[in-house]
Structures are given as structure tokens and as C-alpha cells.
């Protein structure tokens, strides 16, 4: 009974009073928005870089672009995402006023692109060279063959790894508080600092991340199964 009263009190303190639940809700909105748009940027960058790298590996063409792509991959994967976020916010956009959500989207998108690129590249390399030859022999040019024939198969092969990357990305956005962006984590932390009771706000935040991750994993499994069935 005491426990229940304590719980209700704490709930009242942390979420109801002063509309503190809004920190959680707004923070969740920011986290989801940053993740969604970062995923889109990550996919765009990742596919382009993957095609450049795979083309170079297979044909020796695009030497300069491949060189640039390699620098990008080395730098992004060799430094912590928080540092990248801080550099983009304070160095690159240091002199201009810019929406923090946009900065986070860019930082996490550019970061994710490097990981997506390596996943997709391995997917492209795993496709039988006969597929490219068949496409080219019909009269498709290199890019058309990539688009219609190679990438759909590569994508299907790497879908589990890609889905995993996006789940990681969702969790990684929790460092957005470093540029004072009020995402889900920051929202919970703000409540904690106001109420001096860490338990409820932080566990709530954790539970929300967990729920989203489980939902995404579930959807991913379903999608994988559907893609696999379409080949049978």
C-alpha cells in the first residue's frame, strides 16, 4: 500500500506537476524526427558511397570518388559520433544560428551513412557477377543495371543488418543533449534535475526506447519474411 502511494506521489511529482510529461512527449517527438530524417540521409549517402566503392572494386573506375569515399569512411568510423555532433554544431555551424534538430539530423545522418555504405557495399559484392552481365547484355547501362537488378537484391540480402543499424542509430541519438537538443533522453534528464528523483523519469525513458526498439525489430522481422516469401 505504501509502495503504491509512493508510486502515485512520484508519478504526480515527475509527470503531472507543471505538465512535466511534456518533456517526455516533446523529447520523444524530437528523437523520432531526428532518427527518421537521419535514416533517410544515411540511406542516401550510404547507397551512393556503396555504389562508388563497389564500382571501383569491380571495375577500377571512379578512382577519385572512391578515394574521397574512403576518407569519409575512415574519418566517420574512426571518431565518436558525439565529437562529430559537436564539431558540426560548434565548428561548422558555429557562426550561424541554425535549428538544432537540423544539426542533429545532419550529424547522425552523415554518421549513419558510413555504416550503411559498408553494409550495402558488402551486399552488392555478394551478388553474382552474372547478374550484372545479364543486365548489360540486355542493353541496360551500368547505373540502370545497378538500380533495377543489383541493388534490389543487395538490399534484400542486407536488410537485417540495415535494420539493426537503424536501431543502433535510434539509441545513438540519445547523445543529442550534448548540443542542448531536448530529445527523449534530455527530456527525462530535465525532469530528474527538477524533481531530484532520478528513478521514475530515467526508467520511463529507458522503457520508451526499449518499446520502440522492440517494435522496430518486430516490423523488421515481418518485412524480412515477406521479402523472402516473394522469392519462393
Amino acid at each position: 500500500m505504501n509502495f503504491l502511494i509512493g508510486f502515485a506521489d512520484s508519478f504526480q511529482q515527475n509527470f503531472i506537476k507543471a505538465n512535466r510529461w511534456k518533456y517526455i512527449l516533446n523529447g520523444l517527438g524530437v528523437t523520432l524526427r531526428v532518427t527518421l530524417f537521419a535514416v533517410l540521409i544515411g540511406i542516401a549517402i550510404g547507397f551512393i558511397v556503396a555504389v562508388i566503392r563497389a564500382t571501383y572494386e569491380k571495375t577500377g573506375k571512379l578512382k577519385i570518388l572512391n578515394f574521397i569515399a574512403n576518407i569519409y569512411l575512415t574519418v566517420i568510423r574512426g571518431t565518436p559520433v558525439v565529437v562529430q555532433l559537436l564539431i558540426i554544431y560548434f565548428v561548422i555551424f558555429g557562426a550561424v544560428r541554425i535549428d538544432k534538430v537540423l544539426v542533429a539530423v545532419l550529424a547522425f545522418g552523415i554518421n549513419s551513412g558510413a555504416y550503411v555504405a559498408e553494409i550495402v557495399r558488402s551486399g552488392i559484392m555478394s551478388i553474382d557477377p552474372g547478374q550484372m552481365e545479364a543486365g548489360r547484355s540486355l542493353g541496360f547501362n551500368y547505373i540502370q543495371t545497378m538500380w533495377h537488378i543489383i541493388l534490389p537484391q543487395a538490399f534484400k540480402n542486407v536488410l537485417p543488418a540495415l535494420g539493426n543499424e537503424f536501431i543502433v542509430l535510434l539509441k545513438e541519438t540519445s547523445v543529442a543533449g550534448y548540443i542542448a537538443l531536448e530529445d527523449l533522453t534530455k527530456g527525462g534528464d530535465i525532469i530528474r534535475s527538477q524533481t531530484y528523483s532520478p528513478f521514475m523519469p530515467l526508467l520511463t525513458v529507458a522503457a520508451i526506447y526499449l518499446a520502440i526498439v522492440m517494435l522496430l525489430s518486430f516490423l523488421l522481422k515481418k518485412l524480412e519474411r515477406r521479402l523472402r516469401n516473394s522469392e519462393r
Partner: peptide, 20 residues
């Protein structure tokens, strides 16, 4: 060459159908 390849059909030992 892409234009002319359209007029030259090719059949491979390993078929190379598009599995997807």
C-alpha cells in the same frame, strides 16, 4: 554500346535470370 546490345541477345551457361 548499350543501344546495340539491345539487338544482340545473349544466353549464358548459368542462365542468370533475375531471382527477385
Amino acid at each position: 554500346i548499350n543501344k546495340h546490345r539491345q539487338k544482340m541477345g545473349m544466353v549464358f551457361q548459368q542462365f542468370n535470370l533475375f531471382p527477385h
